[in-house]
Design a protein around this nucleic acid. Structure first.
Length: 817
RNA sequence: GCCGAGGUGGCGAAACUGGUAGACGCGCCGGACUCAAAAUCCGGUGGUGGCGACACCGUGUCGGUUCGACUCCGACCCUCGGUACCA
């Protein structure tokens, strides 16, 4: 055995052995308990960054730990290969997205392999492969027939100069990122999936998902945003047969409504604008806006009177109809009722445009002038209804019930549940994505592409120009035959949102080579994913879409569970000097350089050691040095003790003092592995090496057997984190070929027993002394020992003992005054 | 704007169910080895005061609950993630 630690040799050898033995090839085996561990697959951007390395290291540690504990582990890897960056690269460097993506994948695969992750590479997939997206297209055509997929208009960011649709990311300060032209909002027809049909189910299931962090469940609950309220119809004054529909959770304030507001795109606004140039101009100016919620909510609230009126559904009072830039067609009905007395946004809008503010709710027992309550700001608190005729005196709940009942009798409204969640827009006016499998026929309308014509392949030899997708100009792609009538027809040229591909890849990994169906019987063995690991930035969109998509597959009979991911770990970001590591900030650290210098095990160890997985991790070059130093020290120690360890027998008695500490460390590390706090596992391993090095310097009778036991324990503990060095030393010390299949070390409870305990003695909660007591000491004996302490006596002088708290095994607190 | 997190020594962090704040590592200081340096090894290291035993202060800020609070409650400040076409 080489005296020096040479990671490049150690790691190449271990990786070759795993490859030759197909160690990580996963095989379905109903007799064994499975463990499907999945890290979010990467977008093939070119090179791995530290965030990837961290994500995949955490996943690998969990996979290897579970395997050592006896589970049948599946850990696959693939590529989220469609997306915008490939188109940007194509524009910048003139490389077609397909070849750019494939080159990136080849490079990044090698980087992952160099890190020694225990992946079953035979299951690798890339979402840009027709063999993959074929089944996504297939499922979409089922959804189309079921009415889950539907078409309607929705707003997009439009750059009028480049004549192209922009992603929110491509809009900077309201302008196009390339040409700085102010962005417009445009309504265009798009495909949607009816996720709102599943809103209640997606919400309810969160309560049972105990393997998910509470923060993610809370975020999803808020995102779905279920609210109970009333839908109210305001008849239009000039055309009482028509009504403006609004939804409100505060129907108790209905009598305080003083105006209504509609979206600039609302039909009523357009109607009013026909003979009002000023209004038409205002509506036009509202198009000069981004589509993002953040931009919408922080933009200045502007509005204009349409001159039209609606009738209050209960009082018959005429209420003016305003157009407001903060009301969007896509949300709810595109109209809201305004109660400025009890809604702050309405209050500010009313104040700005001199609209009336009326108070219709006051706190219980309030005797003053209600108007005084809303003079300086809206009063959003719930209370007792006033100034509302027959509803006066009712509390919130009763008032809502009474208002809803009356609206119901008049057929002008009813109770309804509303969700904040909106249907999922899956159309993208982009090239590098999965073609939407739809054909438009002038005679037969919208036709799904028949199964036998799937996949609709994305043409790959195309030139991009930064404006419209090249698909729209590719005659041989666009021109086709109607599957129904055989006549000339056109293909859809939009592609799917890339969240579509990432919504089911976890399932496809179970049946990656199946070419007769989306999934086969192997899915039933492996699903659901037992442990999913990825960034917190995916807490809402990706994870909600995947949960939804899983249900779509369930309802198609493809999977049998409701939820795709049993347990979720959201890892923190990688920072450098306290700020996010990113290319734009120029503070990146290239994993490849580090691996070349220190080896994969050092990088893995540092990543695991520097922070707990769910916290952010601050990169430190000297911290990496520390990890490397530890591995070198471990290597030197194991080699130096090799002969001793190989000579000792497992049955020899050990050194009780060292064994007690050893097993206490093991117990803690075991606990930390189970609660996914790997940084303290690494710390326990370091303590263990320190302990064994100290023990090696002594001459106690059980020394050699304890070194043997301790080194085996230490290598097992480290094997999930630094698998290469662990395997090399495992072999050298004669423990076997590899630790990947365990056995996992077991805590020896008898080794932990103590006859003396140290207790802390506090006076008024402040540490004053420590005392030794026999392990079985009763309360009386403990009190006596505490009172016998000199330090305690000093602090008791001239004071009266009021109370004596004894926490068994921990401390004594004397309360004095 | 709204929703969700985070804030502990010079630095990364730990502290299990409210019970010894700062484990482990980095850095720094001192020492050993060396002609010298690197590497390695040994010791020290939250702040203030004191020769010292020791005392006081200390977990973003302000307040509260408790025998006892990094941990629980209330208000606030700052940083980060998401905000539906970045992935």
């Amino acid at each position: 055995m080489n005296e020096q630690y040479h990671p490049e040799h150690v790691e190449a050898e271990a990786q070759a052995w795993w490859r030759d033995n197909q160690t990580f090839r996963a095989r379905e085996d109903p007799a064994r308990e499975k463990y499907y561990c999945l890290s979010m697959f990467p977008y093939p951007s070119g090179r791995l960054h530290m965030g990837h390395v961290r994500n995949y290291t955490i996943g690998d540690v969990m996979s290897r730990y579970q395997r050592m504990r006896g589970r049948n582990v599946l850990q696959p890897m693939g590529w989220d290969a469609f997306g915008l960056p490939a188109e940007n690269a194509a524009l910048q460097h003139g490389v077609p997205p397909a070849s750019w993506t494939r080159q990136n994948i080849d490079y990044m695969r090698e980087q992952l392999q160099r890190l020694g992750f225990a992946y079953d590479w035979s299951r690798e997939l890339a979402t840009c492969q027709p063999e993959y997206y074929r089944w996504e297209q297939w499922l979409f055509t089922r959804l189309l027939k079921k009415g889950i997929a539907f078409r309607r208009t929705a707003p997009v960011n439009w750059c009028p100069k480049d004549m192209t649709v922009l992603a929110n990311e491509q809009v900077v300060d309201g302008c196009c990122w390339r040409c700085d032209t102010p962005v417009e909002r445009r309504e265009i027809p798009q495909w949607f999936l009816k996720i709102t049909d599943y809103a209640q189910e997606l919400l309810d299931a969160l309560d049972e998902m105990e393997g998910w962090p509470e923060k993610v469940r809370t975020m999803q609950r808020n995102w779905i945003g279920r609210s109970e309220g009333v839908e109210i119809h305001f008849p239009i004054a000039d055309a009482p047969a028509e009504a403006l529909r609004v939804f409100t959770t505060r129907a108790d304030t209905l009598m305080g409504a003083t105006y209504v507001a509609v979206a600039p795109e609302h039909a009523l606004a357009a109607r009013a604008a026909q003979d009002r140039p000023h209004l038409a101009e205002f509506i036009e100016s509202c198009r000069q806006a981004e589509t993002s919620e953040a931009a919408l909510e922080t933009a200045e609230k502007r509005g204009m009177d349409t001159g039209l009126f609606v009738l209050h559904p209960l009082s018959g009072r005429r209420l003016p109809v305003w157009v407001a830039n903060f009301v969007l067609m896509a949300y709810g009905e595109g109209a809201v009722m305004a109660v400025p007395g009890h809604d702050q946004r309405d209050w500010e809008f009313a104040r700005k445009y001199q609209l009336p503010v009326e108070a219709v709710v006051v706190p219980e027992g309030f005797a003053g002038d209600p108007a005084s309550r809303v003079a300086e700001a809206a009063d959003e608190e719930k209370g007792v209804v006033v100034n509302s005729g027959e509803f006066d005196g009712l509390g919130f709940r009763d008032a809502v019930d009474a208002v809803a009942a009356k609206l119901g009798r008049l057929e002008r409204g009813e109770k309804r549940v509303a969700f904040r969640l909106r249907d999922w827009g899956v159309s993208r006016q982009r090239y590098w994505g999965c073609p939407i499998p739809v054909i438009y026929c002038d005679a037969c309308g919208i036709q799904p592409v028949p199964d036998e014509q799937l996949p609709v392949r994305l043409p790959e030899d195309v030139a991009l120009d930064g404006a419209v997708s090249p698909l729209t100009r590719l005659e041989e792609f666009v021109t086709t035959q109607c599957p129904a009538c055989g006549g000339a027809a056109r293909r859809e040229t939009d592609t799917f949102d890339t969240f579509m591909e990432s919504s089911w890849y976890f399932a496809r990994f179970t049946s990656p080579d199946c070419d007769t169906a989306m999934l086969d019987e192997r899915a039933a063995y492996w699903l659901p994913v037992d442990q999913y690991i990825g960034g917190i930035e995916h807490a809402i969109l990706h994870l909600l879409y995947a949960r939804f998509f899983h249900r779509l597959m369930r309802d198609e009979g493809l999977v049998s569970t409701d939820e795709p991911f049993a347990r979720l770990l959201t890892q923190g970001m990688v920072l450098k000097d306290g700020v996010k590591m990113s290319k734009s900030k120029g503070n990146t650290v290239d994993p490849e350089d580090l691996i070349a210098r220190y080896g994969a095990d050092t990088v893995r160890l540092f990543i695991v050691f520097a922070s707990s997985p769910d916290q952010s991790l601050d990169w430190s070059d000297s911290g990496v040095e520390g990890a490397y130093r530890f591995l070198r020290r471990l290597w030197a120690f194991a080699v130096a003790q090799g002969a001793t360890v190989r000579r000792a027998a497992d049955s020899d008695p050990g050194d009780p003092a060292v064994r007690r500490e050893l097993h206490a460390l093991l117990r803690q590390a075991d606990y930390d592995y189970r609660r996914n706090q790997f940084n303290t596992v690494a710390s326990a391993a370091m303590k263990m090496l320190n302990l064994l090095q100290d023990a090696a310097g002594t001459q106690t009778p059980g020394r050699d057997a304890t070194l043997r036991e301790g080194l085996r324990m230490l290598l097992a503990l480290l094997a999930p984190i630094t698998p290469h060095i662990a395997q090399a030393l495992w072999r050298d010390l004669g423990f076997g070929d590899t630790p990947v299949d365990g056995p996992w070390p077991v805590v020896d409870e008898t080794a932990l027993e103590q006859d003396q305990l140290e207790l802390v003695v506090q006076v008024n909660g402040r540490l004053r002394d420590r005392i030794q007591v026999p392990a079985g000491a009763d309360r009386q004996a403990i009190e006596a020992a505490a009172l016998a302490s000199e330090a305690v006596a000093r602090h008791l002088q001239g004071k009266t003992l009021r109370k004596l708290v004894v926490v068994p095994g921990k401390l004594v607190n004397l309360v004095v005054s």
